[in-house]
Design a protein around this nucleic acid. Structure first.
Length: 454
DNA sequence: TCTGGGGTCCTAGGACCC
DNA sequence: TCTGGGGTCCTAGGACCC
């Protein structure tokens, strides 16, 4: 029911042809690096690398953003910091006296990610964007689509887009690339086309010709895996994809195949709609090297569970599904999740459920663990009142949860034993938390460590 | 390039219900 | 008792995006 909130009547796709719209895609250039330069002007003109999971001086983590100066040295997003340091040593290691030290002109400045700062800068940019358009879809911290159909027209849209860029540069101090096109996916292609500081307008007349020569991987939605498969069939460009047999694409790639075919032909029936509520929250973290011992992994799971639960509470979200992730070397991603009979806000339950689901990975080598909550509902909007929620919950709690001591893994064939008795409230009454913050808390009965009764 | 973190959507099989 | 088909929910994995 809550899902329907995001599917407003006006948001249904137009079936009978491209919607007549003017879409503007705004994409900040090297946003994290630009934000660092904003508060540390000495970084301007220098190779800057912003690393995540990285602290000053260490060499763990990965590159979140590399400035264009750093990219000259072969440093790129998602690259391991160790690799980046090989190509671009840190400035601190330059030493004019030492012949073995790197040349200062071939060193870069490394900074750790500071999301709070970027969020604050991003908010200023978004404020401008909302002033420039009636509908804005914020895709990420540094990217948004604008529906500007009613604000401009094809004759003057270039000036309009230039105005948006200049406002961002003048009022916030960071550079954006802007693309304008009749569809979302083409606007995205347009903003990418002349980065950095680009401004590209693709009119409806030019659309097909513009797309045709592009690499097939430039089509939004074609990633490395699909691109490889397409190339194996001789489909190298967007034009090749546009000319390919649609039914064959659907056979091979499912509905997505048809969608990609459309996009390569300049057809994209999506409209610009604001983003709805989030669907899940997750936290994950990687170990420096794979860990086999149970306790350090369990400790990390506990930490992540607490962080996820805290996030949900902060955002006023209840969750009905709790899940974990365990990545085994070399890169085998395993996920396990369980759904509850009803939405809860219960940090202790997130922890015990996560540990329980994680049990089967306790004694194997794991390089990364994660915890997730999903099936979210938001208290102050689409959620039934606390009173009715509590009543419904009480009704499903009449049967006490069994503590059978079984391993979670033993439950595979025990589906018939599943019962609907949910998680029991500790004191038998579903009282609000003492803090009186409106959050109803739920915990497993003392001593219960298994979730086989989910 | 030996792979970080936070998300979304899709698919496929099985359970379960009518 | 056997058979059928449709619909929905759940779980696991995969691809993609930023």
């Amino acid at each position: 029911m809550s899902d329907d909130v995001t599917r407003l009547p006006g948001a249904s796709p137009v079936e009978d042809g491209p919607p007549d719209q003017l879409v503007c895609h705004v994409d900040m250039d090297c946003f994290y690096a630009a934000c660092e330069r904003l508060r540390e002007p000495a970084l301007r003109g220098e190779p800057v690398v912003v690393g995540m999971g990285y602290e000053p001086g260490d060499d763990a983590g990965a590159v979140a953003t590399a400035s264009y100066e750093a990219r000259e040295f072969g440093v790129d997003s998602a690259m391991a910091i160790t690799t980046a340091l090989e190509r671009l040593p840190r400035r601190e290691d330059a030493d004019l006296e030492d012949p073995d030290a790197p040349d200062i002109d071939e060193t870069g400045l490394y900074r750790p990610v500071d999301l709070d700062h970027y969020q604050a800068v991003g908010a200023q940019v978004k404020e401008i964007l909302h002033e420039c358009a009636d509908v804005v879809r914020e895709v990420s911290i540094d990217e948004a689509y604008l529906d500007v159909t009613d604000r401009t027209n094809w004759e003057v849209v270039e000036g309009f887009a230039r105005h948006v860029k200049q406002r961002i540069a003048r009022e916030v101090g960071v550079a954006a690339s802007v693309g304008v096109a009749p569809t979302l996916s083409a606007a995205k292609v347009a903003s990418d086309h002349d980065k950095p500081d680009g401004l590209v307008v693709i009119t409806p007349d030019e659309l097909v010709e513009f797309l045709a020569p592009l690499d097939v991987e430039d089509v939004h939605g074609v990633g490395p895996v699909t691109a490889r498969k397409l190339r194996e069939e001789g489909i190298e460009t967007a034009g090749d994809l546009a000319d390919a047999d649609r039914d064959a694409l659907v056979d091979r790639f499912g509905e997505r195949g048809g969608e990609l075919h459309d996009r390569a032909r300049g057809r994209d029936y999506r409209e610009v709609t604001p983003r709805g509520d989030p669907k899940s929250f997750s936290r994950e973290s990687a170990f420096g090297s794979p860990v086999t011992d149970a306790e350090p992994k369990r400790e990390q799971v506990r930490t992540l569970a607490a962080a996820v639960a805290e996030r949900a509470q902060r955002e006023g979200a209840l969750y009905r599904t709790i899940g974990v992730k365990a990545v085994e070397p070399p890169f085998d991603v395993n996920t396990r999740e369980r759904s509850l009979p009803g939405p809860v806000d219960d940090p202790a339950l997130v922890e015990s459920a996560a540990l329980d689901l994680f049990a089967e990975f306790e004694d194997v080598a794991v390089r990364k663990v994660g915890v997730r909550v999903a099936n979210l509902s938001f208290t102050d909007r689409d959620q039934p009142s606390l009173a009715s929620f509590t009543a419904a919950q009480a009704a499903s709690e009449t049967e006490p949860a069994a503590t059978d001591g079984d391993d979670a893994s033993d439950d595979e064939d025990g589906a018939g034993e599943r019962d609907d008795a949910a998680v029991d409230a500790t004191d038998g009454d579903a009282s609000e938390s003492p803090a009186g913050d409106g959050h109803k808390t739920h915990t497993l009965p003392p001593g219960q460590t298994s979730l086989t009764d989910f």
